[in-house]
Amino acid sequence: MKRIDAIQAIYPAIADHVVVTIMGATAAELFACGHRPNFFYLEHAMGLASSMGLGIALARPDLKVIVLDGDGSVLMNLGGLSTMARSGPPNLVQIVFDNEVLLSVGVSFTTATADVANIEGIARESGVPRTATCKRVEELRECVDMALASNELTTIVAKVEPVGPKSFFIDPHMLENRFEFERALRRMGDSKPIGDVNE
């Protein structure tokens, strides 16, 4: 499957939730499907999209948080999987697009998933309670729907072809996106952040 087709297929399911995506190709492909203020494109800080998703999920248990991740990014923050698992927020779904390369740097530098490593296995053994690997778009769509309905921390590995968009163009500037996203989160959901003094 191509990642752009996968993102298009799950877009209706994720569009009304909080979405944090990794940099580069994945960010541009999500943007191409239609920007929303509740989408955050984490440029450059490789590996930390899942940690950010964890922070949001813990702070706002009333919201569902979806992280669009990559194999290179996950491998750079492997400990984060165990941190996520032991914190165990039920409202967090991580979708790892595993294209077996560091696509966004423009070269086919393969990652360890191309030959030896298995991210679903690592996630499962790190303690993530629900994991899956999907190879087809339809399968992924079902998996994401089930994860969102399950109310359980989930890591889904989507095996995708190593192809990306022609351009990494994203319209809101990074800081514009950051402030717009913060504001959007304030308007979403049915409760205030945990520990809000005005609760």
Binding site: F40, M52, L58, A59, G79, T83, L185
Partner: peptide, 25 residues
């Protein structure tokens, strides 16, 4: 009243704090 996140590596904490801040915590 406190959420404690036990990290495996410190830099995860930067991501967690960033997420928490944007989520109002």
């Amino acid at each position: 009243e406190m959420i404690l996140v036990r990290l495996a590596k410190e830099e995860e904490g930067i991501g967690i704090s960033a997420g928490a801040h944007l989520a109002g915590v």
